[in-house]
């Protein structure tokens, strides 16, 4: 885990845009926008990205996902953890 589970927040240099039904994370802070490397999020990822506009804890995020998508808390936590690990690795978290 490369983030603090008590205080998680997304980078502000990316905006989420819906393009043809896909959730694209568009880098607005970088000098170069490479369309070949653009990040596409699924529904859950897009929801989490919006929630991460403010600082959240891992527990809060897991509870929000469990509530929003009607899944078991343990499964939600595992999914959130996996998503956060992935986006932290590519520098999308503060």
């Amino acid at each position: 885990m490369s983030f603090d589970p008590a205080a998680i927040r997304r980078q502000d240099d990316f905006v989420l845009q819906n393009v043809a039904g896909e959730h694209l994370l568009v880098p607005i802070g970088a000098q170069v926008m490479d369309l070949n490397g653009i990040i596409i999020l699924n529904e859950t990822g897009a929801y989490l990205w919006e929630v991460l506009a403010q600082e959240r804890s891992l527990d809060e995020l897991a509870a929000a996902v469990a509530d929003e998508f009607d899944v078991e808390p343990d499964a939600a936590r595992a999914d959130v953890q996996a998503f956060l690990d992935e986006i932290a690795q590519i520098g999308l978290l503060v």
Partner: peptide, 23 residues
């Protein structure tokens, strides 16, 4: 160039002064 749907994204990036790379 890539699908027409991506064009607003490309145009906005160019207006922001970003360089856009695409296939």
């Amino acid at each position: 160039l890539p699908s027409r749907e991506l064009m607003p994204v490309i145009c906005a990036a160019l207006e922001r002064g970003q360089q856009v790379r695409l296939t």
